[in-house]
Write a protein that binds this DNA or RNA. Structure first.
Length: 156
DNA sequence: GCCAACGTTGGC
DNA sequence: GCCAACGTTGGC
C-alpha cells in the first residue's frame, strides 16, 4: 500500500466539499499535469491513503486524510465540451487524463500548516515543497507517520 | 495582487 | 530536439 498527497484549492474543491458528498466519496478529477497523471494512472491503487492538502487559500496545509476507493479510470470531463477540463486533443480510445475516486477518512481538527510542516525535517522533504506543480505526489511511510505526529501534537 | 518558479507550447 | 515565450500555479 502506498501513501500520497493530493493538492486542491479549497475555493474550487476543499475537504468540506468532500465531507458533504454522499458517502463522503467523490471523483478526484481535473488533473492536467502529465507527471501527476502518470502517478494517478499507474501508481495510485485502491486502498492507498492520501493526505488532503489545501493550496492557494487562507490556511494552507494538510487538512485531513482520504482513502482511494477506485483506481484510475479515464476522466470523463476531458470529453465534455462544456467542462472547463475539456481537452479536444484527447481521444476516447486513447484518453490523456485519468481520475480516481476517494473517500474522506478524517478531517483534522486543525489544519497542519506549511509553517509546521516545513519546520519538521521529515515533512519539510514532502514533494509539495520540492516541486510546486505536482498535484499528485507520493509520500513515504515515515512522512505519513510524521504528519500523523504533527497532527497529534499540533497547535491547539 | 504580486511575482517567482515551473510546465507546456510552438517555431526553428 | 532545443529553447524562448507564454500561461498557470502557488506562497506571501
Amino acid at each position: 500500500m502506498n501513501y500520497w498527497v493530493f493538492k486542491s484549492e479549497p475555493d474550487a474543491y476543499g475537504i468540506d466539499h468532500l465531507a458533504a458528498e454522499k458517502k463522503k466519496t467523490a471523483r478526484w478529477d481535473g488533473i492536467r499535469n502529465f507527471q501527476a497523471r502518470n502517478n494517478l494512472r499507474d501508481l495510485v491503487k485502491k486502498n492507498d491513503l492520501v493526505l488532503f492538502y489545501h493550496s492557494s487559500c487562507k490556511e494552507i496545509g494538510i487538512v485531513g486524510t482520504m482513502e482511494v476507493v477506485q483506481a484510475a479510470y479515464p476522466d470523463p470531463a476531458q470529453f465534455d465540451p462544456d467542462s472547463k477540463y475539456y481537452d479536444e486533443k484527447s481521444e476516447p480510445d486513447n484518453p490523456r487524463w485519468y481520475s480516481v475516486d476517494v473517500r474522506l477518512v478524517e478531517k483534522f481538527p486543525e489544519v497542519v500548516p506549511t509553517k509546521i510542516l516545513k519546520a519538521d525535517p521529515m515533512t519539510a522533504e514532502l514533494s509539495i515543497f520540492k516541486q510546486g506543480r505536482l498535484s499528485i505526489a507520493s509520500v513515504s511511510a515515515a512522512q505519513w507517520e510524521a504528519v500523523r505526529r504533527l497532527r497529534a501534537d499540533g497547535p491547539v
